[in-house]
Write a protein that binds this DNA or RNA. Structure first.
Lengths: 244, 244
DNA sequence: ACAAAAGTGTTTTAACTACACCCATGG
DNA sequence: CCATGGGTGTAGTTAAAACACTTTTGT
């Protein structure tokens, strides 16, 4: 890496170094209440700067691959995760993000479902944290997570995104649980169910979830457009009218 | 873990070069019909690659400034424009965007009002084009403009963004004209007016626009939050409910 | 007076909210 | 048979769409 720059002019001449990082979200039951809450995996830094602090998984962009591929590869290498939902979040390029070297980070965000999250290679240096109880992270990563959370909640309101937290088939109550966890508010089960049934992307199967101590709920599948790797950038699907 | 880079091409070893570009939108009357349509300024490339082709204004990120400042400075230098609305659009990093050198572009988009657009220093190498009648641009800039257009229309539907095309005070019919130009569809004047009057960000003045050959319309002002340079990233203001 | 756009009112239709109620299963 | 969550029905409220109508200016 580059050493600390001796003066300003020298620093401005060097090209900024370019890194890719990813915010990964998953839902896990809270230890205390058991209700679903947002969690994300962090990795401990094993070099300077910020050695020993927790940080978003990421690394330099130095391979022959697209930005999205770089995010996916790095994620797999550092955490063992291979999220099916991965999208660009924002490019952070403030001047004082990193002491010493000018650093531009292109940040992605991912949603993983429980079966994917289980594959995390946890260790001394890789751990899941509750999104609302993060320690002080390296660089400006706390700000980045806050922004990702804001975007997640925002997207929840008009995008078909909640299903990426769930497996292939799910009950409508599970979808509601996702909404309630992310938006942090209660929703009317009856009305929520009607709204979901009205969206064409949710199709009912003829299977039912057995083994619960009440009436077995029907299972559904998400059959809408799924973001694919390398498909360029995808964003909220237009489905609104409210104009101004 | 990392692949042996000895047998990888030399290109992968060089850090990708980092550039900032901007898509600037303004409304201008169409020459034929006189109705407002979307236009954007382009600059002709004066070096290889793509020498002589039209391209988005931009340049390398090689100064001590934030990404947003870099976009603003470059815009001013190349076109003379200083947009009051400037926001990050997307980071494009595909492998084959530029022949020869790996290139990552962080693209901003801007909206300018007529008084700002007049300050453009047009020349042989700087010209405004209708957004729906662009020539073949350098690099992947046609794709980038298409994406910016898609985002603009999308944002129009739930963000307070239309006012940035207009001056400090405006009539409700002018706002409607913006919507009709961007969304390319007719809107009911009566209902549109009611909706605008219902949004708290639009406040009525006690002035009227004189000199038209009909009843003088009242002037309004946008008093909502205006995006500022250097305020980090700003995005659509949450104002919806429709949940799934 | 007339054209033309500003601005208002009214009816219809669709969507969301709140809440009462029935259904199916495990214990 | 009862507790629990799945699932349905329905009345009340709110917002948007469609369109007829009145108002105020310039010519």
């Amino acid at each position: 890496m580059y050493p600390d720059s001796a003066n300003v002019s020298e620093r401005s001449l060097k090209p900024p170094s370019l890194a890719i990082s990813t915010v990964i979200f998953a839902l896990r039951p809270s230890e205390a209440t058991g209700r679903s809450t947002l969690w994300l995996p962090l990795v401990r830094r094993i070099r300077q700067p910020h050695l020993g602090r927790w940080a978003l998984p990421g690394g330099p962009l130095d391979h022959l691959e697209s930005l999205q591929d770089a995010a996916a590869r790095n994620l797999l290498e550092t955490t063992g995760l291979a999220p099916r939902y991965l999208e660009q979040l924002y490019a952070f390029g403030g001047l004082h993000r990193s002491a010493g070297q000018r650093l531009v980070s292109i940040v992605y965000w991912a949603l993983v479902q429980p079966s994917e999250a289980e594959l995390t290679r946890e260790s001394e240096n890789v751990r899941w944290f509750r999104a609302d109880k993060l320690p002080g992270l390296a660089f400006d990563h706390n700000d980045i997570v806050d922004y990702a959370l804001w975007r997640l909640r925002n997207r929840m309101e008009y995008g078909s995104i909640a299903y990426h937290f769930l497996g292939q088939s799910f009950t409508l109550a599970q979808v509601r649980e996702v909404y309630e966890a992310v938006l942090d508010k209660q929703l009317d089960p009856a009305n929520f169910r009607r709204q979901l049934r009205a969206t064409p992307d949710i199709t009912a199967t003829d299977e039912y979830l057995q083994g619960c101590r009440h009436r077995p709920p029907r299972l559904y599948r998400y059959t809408g457009p799924a973001p694919q790797y390398g498909a360029g950038q995808q964003n909220p699907s237009p489905q609104l009218r409210r104009v101004p």
